[in-house]
C-alpha cells in the first residue's frame, strides 16, 4: 500500500477535525450556572488559579488543580461537556489552604472555568483551554 504525502496529511486532518465538533453547545447553561453561583456579581480576572495540562493524554481522566487564597468556595465548569458542572469545593475552618486537586472528564477540547467565591464577598474567574485528542491505539 502506498500513500502520497498529501493523502497522509489528509488523514491526519480528519482526526483533528473530529476532535473539534461539539464546541459551545451548552454556553447558555454555563452562563446560568455562573449567575447562580455569583448572584450576577462582577468577577475579577485575578485571584484564582487553575492548573491543567495543555493537552490531556486521555479526556476520561484529566488532572486539574484549583487555588484561590481567601476563597470560601471554588466552582469548576467544563464548558464543552454535555452537562458543564464538574464540582464545587467548599472550604471549612480547618482547610489548610484554599486549594484542591482532582481528576475530571472532558468530552472534547474546551475551556474549563474556575470561579472563586472569596470571603470578602467578591468573585474571581479564570479559564484554561484543555485540548482533548483522539488517541491512536491507546485512546
Amino acid at each position: 500500500m502506498n500513500f502520497s504525502r498529501r493523502e497522509t496529511f489528509g488523514l491526519g486532518l480528519g482526526a483533528v477535525a473530529l476532535t473539534m465538533l461539539p464546541v459551545g453547545a451548552s454556553a447558555a447553561t454555563v452562563d446560568e450556572l455562573i449567575a447562580e453561583f455569583t448572584g450576577g456579581a462582577d468577577m475579577a480576572d485575578t485571584g484564582v488559579t487553575l492548573t491543567a495540562p495543555e493537552i490531556a493524554e486521555n479526556g476520561n481522566t484529566v488532572p486539574i488543580s484549583v487555588e484561590a487564597p481567601g476563597a470560601s468556595a471554588i466552582m469548576v465548569l467544563a464548558t464543552g461537556n454535555p452537562t458543564p458542572p464538574v464540582g464545587t469545593f467548599n472550604f471549612g475552618p480547618l482547610a489548610g489552604s484554599r486549594s484542591a486537586s482532582t481528576r475530571i472528564r472532558l468530552a472534547t477540547t474546551q475551556d474549563v472555568v474556575a470561579i472563586a467565591k472569596l470571603e470578602d464577598g467578591t468573585f474571581a474567574r479564570t479559564s484554561a483551554e484543555i485540548k482533548v485528542t483522539i488517541g491512536g491505539c491507546g485512546g
Binding site: 481522566t61 461537556n81 464538574v86 467548599n90 472550604f91 484542591a100
Partner: peptide, 16 residues
C-alpha cells in the same frame, strides 16, 4: 469540624 466539602457532578472521573 469541616476541612472540605465537595459537591460532585458526573464530570468527575471514575474512581474519584
Amino acid at each position: 469540624e469541616s476541612v472540605i466539602d465537595v459537591k460532585m457532578e458526573p464530570a468527575m472521573s471514575t474512581n474519584p
